[in-house]
Structures are given as C-alpha cells and as structure tokens.
Amino acid sequence: MSNGDCMAKNERTTAAICDAGPIIHLDELNRLDLLSDFHSLIIPKSVQIEITKHRPQALQHAGVIFKVIEAASPPEPKLLTLSKALLLDKGEIESLSLIQANPDAIFLTDDAAARLAGEELGYKAHGTIGIILRAIRKNMRTPKEVLELLHKIPKGTTLFLRPALLEEIIQKVKKEYSIK
C-alpha cells in the first residue's frame, strides 16, 4: 500500500499537538507520513527548537507540515502546578498549554509524565506506538507493514521499549489480523 493510497478516505478532522518524541521517533523510522492525515499538526516553538537541535530533517518532510505556535505564557495555574509536580520540560508544558486552546486535539507524546499531565487535564494523549498501529485502522499501512515497522524500533529508533513488551504488541497485531 503506498503512502497516499487511502489518504482521501480518511476523515481529516482531528488536530494533533505534538511533543518532540513521536516526531523524532517516526522520522527515525522514515514514517513521518503516518501523521499526515491529521487535520493539523501543531507544535510549540520550544518543541521546534528541540527537534531542530536533535533531528532537523524531521521538520522538513515534504508531506507533513507542522504549524509552529507560540504558547501562552505563563501557563494557567493547574498546568503550572502539574508541570512542577511532574517535572515537565518547557516543550511539554508549552504543548499542554497549546492543547488547552485546542481541547479536541490529540496530544502526542512519548513522555509518561507529560501524558499523565495531559490526561489529568482531561485531554486525549497517545504516543508513537499508538500512531503506528493507528495506521492500520486508517488504511495507511497494512498489518504486515506495521509489523515490519515494529521490528525496526529497537535498532532503528531512540524509542525505548522493553523487548518483552514489544513482542507482546507484535503478537497482539498478529492475532488481531490472523498473521502467522
């Protein structure tokens, strides 16, 4: 299945506010296009700076345009309290600040503390693994293509997953789609 085959079938209605992790990890897999069916992809300035520092090419993908927005400063009190308690970094705080202005958006992060804060504030939050598996549901990749991606994670990315957990995910996908 090619990258754009089923793009037109997808409802491009959901926006995503992205922390640096999923963007970097998907780019390491050369699969940043899995974000392309979101209605808009928003990153705060500090996340842009972080990605530019560590993996600048991730922000230059032809089919994936990130909208860079300055987050309100200072963040609202509950977010400020959570960010101190959970030791969030500037990119995570600004991402959460932006999602408060876009409450129907999905917050994409691979950081457990940032995700905890996002869910505590009542927002939907997901990570790289969710985006990869979602590609099957959205007809962007076949189950076999997704399995190949999952196998590439340990050596091809900086996303850490305990090997047994990764194997659990692989077996779940195989069972779900009756793949031996």
Binding site: T13, T14, I106, A112, R115, L116, H126, G127, I129, G130, I131, I132, L133, R134, A135, I136, R137, L161, R162, L165, I169, K172, V173, E176
Partner: peptide, 18 residues
C-alpha cells in the same frame, strides 16, 4: 505506568475512535 500507556496505545491504535 509507562507500559500501561503503551498498552492503551495499542488498543487506541487498533480500535480507537477519534
């Protein structure tokens, strides 16, 4: 906590609604 989030992602990825 981190692994629970990954498992939630698996469910959302395969069966979630946006």
């Amino acid at each position: 906590l981190m692994e629970n989030f990954v498992r939630e992602d698996v469910e959302w990825g395969l069966h979630g609604k946006e």
